[in-house]
Design a protein around this nucleic acid. Structure first.
Lengths: 109, 109
DNA sequence: CCGCATACCTTGACAATCTACCTATTCAAT
DNA sequence: ATTGAATAGGTAGATTGTCAAGGTATGCGG
């Protein structure tokens, strides 16, 4: 009955862009990195991950390339120039909005 | 074409609960307070505000009462005991998730 | 050869927000 | 006297992002 929330809605894109900015990586690995860096707090479902990746690819913020990993195919993502710019603006936007929320939550009478 | 985002999705409820926790206030006033405290960063649309208030009232985290303000009717909201508890858990949840996001956005290689 | 982790994906439902509307009252400026 | 802005309440429809649940297939350890 309680709603589960693994993510703050709207933040997945910027999280993915950031992880990819650290170096080419495949989808499954992105989810693992997010999980790991956030100390298991952020859990990216595959049903959120793959649509998001396709979304970012369509907007040409990411490019993909199939590579061989231990004899298996995996789709590696890289940031485009536009993606790098987008990461920057979305990061700023996150700071702006999360600071504003914190401001309210810490507001006294 | 660009998407506008006035809010981080999922945060409106906790923002409202917090503002109401500061003292009985009507809906329109809540939006004004959020706007003001956040220094105009957070803009709550009426199409988001009123459904959210009804949602919170349905869940019995808020109770409402019509009062007269300068010869006009306005619906004043107050936190219930359950609402106070909800504010606490949602605030903690916000801290948890936003800290995790910040951790990733500040991650180095 | 079984099961788990890896790696990719899709579909359908749901929930929150936004845009765009609507009504009505008070008050200040014209 | 009239207009328009600000106040105060609301709804309807569309969009969007996420989640739950399902699917395929491969590599590897036991």
């Amino acid at each position: 009955m309680d709603k589960k929330q693994d993510l703050l809605q709207g933040t997945l894109d910027v999280l993915i862009l950031k992880i990819v900015a650290l170096g080419p990586i495949h989808g499954y690995g992105i989810a693992q990195r997010i999980n790991q860096i956030s100390k298991e707090v952020l859990q990216v479902q595959q049903g959120s991950l793959y649509p998001a990746l396709h979304r970012l690819e369509n907007r040409e913020w990411l490019t993909a390339e199939w590579r061989d990993v231990n004899g298996r195919e995996a789709k590696f993502y890289t940031l485009t120039r536009a993606g790098r710019k987008q990461l920057q603006t979305e990061t700023q936007n996150w700071e702006r909005l999360s600071d504003a929320v914190s401001l309210i939550l810490r507001a006294a009478e």
